[in-house]
Design a binder for these strands. Sequence first.
DNA 1: GATCTGATAGACCGCTCATTCAAAGTTACC
DNA 2: GGTAACTTTGAATGAGCGGTCTATCAGATC
Lengths: 207, 207
Amino acid sequence: MSGLSDPKARLREICRIAARVFYEKGYDGASMQEIAQAVGLTKAGLYHHVGSKDNLLFEIMNYGMDILDETVLARVQNIQDPREKLRQTILGHIDLIVRARDLEITVILHENRSLQGELREKINCRKRAYVNYLKDLIAEVQKQSGRPALLSPTLAAFYLLGLVNWLYQWYRPEGTIGQAELGRATVEFFFRGLLGYTPEEGTRASS
Amino acid sequence: MSGLSDPKARLREICRIAARVFYEKGYDGASMQEIAQAVGLTKAGLYHHVGSKDNLLFEIMNYGMDILDETVLARVQNIQDPREKLRQTILGHIDLIVRARDLEITVILHENRSLQGELREKINCRKRAYVNYLKDLIAEVQKQSGRPALLSPTLAAFYLLGLVNWLYQWYRPEGTIGQAELGRATVEFFFRGLLGYTPEEGTRASS
DNA sequence: GATCTGATAGACCGCTCATTCAAAGTTACC
DNA sequence: GGTAACTTTGAATGAGCGGTCTATCAGATC
């Protein structure tokens, strides 16, 4: 743990490592002793950095939302075309779920049970903001299509989250499907479900 | 716990109740003491019926797969039309996930971490059988459409599982969407994603 | 050097955990 | 009624849990 003089960076590193332990053992199944060992400290040393196990989970989830903001939302915010924006959002989200580096952090965002009270509400608030962002963007895409909506933006947003967030249950990067192919297929599947066609096919269907 | 003289039925009732506790607290977060209390026994009494916590989880998951077999697969097996068979499968699966009675049992099937060794492999084997059933059925539906497949049956099967299995994260029966509407919307969304159209729309798209 | 702060550790605390055991209670059968 | 089988219990076990406390050390600042 040398070379990490910035407390914030230190905490993030601890979160990253702890997230891996939580991912593997589950929140309740992972002990602070295990996490401390993984981090390279004693338990008391770990407690210096995080107030409690609960607080550690909160920090990890908060960090996960930060990552989502920084690597997905920030990158699409200047895209004007709603379809392209949605497409890039999906690809960015998939990247988080399946890429090796911080996948545990993003997956742990689904841990709904253990965090309680105020901390839970903070994370839920951030999650809801993401869902609302998706809803609004989907509504724009539907409007852009010039066709009657086939389903509500809310339903579509949750379907999208199901498609993407379930990936960690079955997708293996070393499997037969590359990440780019997965991204493409998922985007297309989703757009067909949403609009009845994929935007590239739109012109063909109207002729 | 009177009136349950059949040991098998007894075990099932214990599974049902335990599943609720596990659903609420998580496998690791739920203690055998809590489960015993919920069942109406002491901990030692509970251990008479289940060998261990692990074994209880296995029994619950096995029971979950039984329920899936009995209430979904058994009911569609005489349907000849692949599309209709797939549709009914989806609706049946959704019913398990969102209906009140045994939703905890079916949701707990996603608990991948805690079960180990031989028991885990038994459940995984049953799960794989279901995935393979979906794949094969999807492949039939694609073939039936007479169009080139837009994505592999494997991908489509996992997308379907994502859509359905994620429902428990967001769907609330008391919300604005009734179960029938949810089922219809999900089936349609999936068929559009799979085929590029919903089978009822097929004739329109070709004209 | 003195003081302060942040970081870390060893030892410990009170409690809970899954599981077990001997004993007691209940039911079924002859 | 007697007996065997089944069911349940109270108490206990050893291990492990999240968290705390005192002490020490290193680095920064005056």
